[in-house]
Amino acid sequence: MKFAVLQFPGSNSDQDCVYTVRLCGHQAELRWHKDTSIGDVDAVLVPGGFSYGDYLRTGAIARFSPIMQSVQAFAAEGGLVLGICNGFQILCEAGLLPGALIRNRSLQFRCEPVHLKTATHDSAFTGEIPEGKLLQVPIAHGEGCYFADAETLASLKANNQILWQYANAQGELTEDANPNGSLENIAGICNERRNVAGLMPHPERASEVLMGGLADGKLIFDSMIAALEKRTQPAAA
């Protein structure tokens, strides 16, 4: 499988995303923000960082970059797109995901490991995560408080679009375990069509045991790869 990893001025997790895809045994190529086409790829990763200095609002300027027009078209055709941290913010600004990410309730930049409960395994981003497993991955953000109006939140729940929620080590969705004040402890969601997802934590920074601790984040990449492989297999007769 081939992944395109976008690169904006201010991206800082782009190389980590490329590294992780290659670690999974697949191909990854960088795409500069001024490129007009993502090319012939199977999936797109929108990495973390501070695109365009986070000026105006996080992701507000990046969403209008030339490469994002191609990502919009790719997503409209059903292509898999995952936004991580700033990438999640960009996808929300672009209207590819509902809601918005606002300043952390504490006003602090939070940089720490968190536990994630997978709310549904019915997605191309969570399919390979074992039932009941809590993921331990780091966060690093100042604007990760997920907000959506009541109507949007109700439709997220009704359509099973909440993918990950911040939990404590016992898997309980407590207020203490919520690092940024997100509604419903939301850490990540997908769109209604289930081909575009975003999350604030950094799975690519927790994909190799050698780099400290667990490799839980890799399960999200494994899920995408398994979903893509399933797509390319002919349907069973």
Binding site: I102, R103, S106, L107, F147, D149, G181
Partner: peptide
């Protein structure tokens, strides 16, 4: 300005 329904931690702190 932030919408009334949106959490405004800066406003609350000030």
């Amino acid at each position: 300005t932030p919408k009334k329904a949106v959490l405004d931690p800066q406003g609350k702190t000030v």
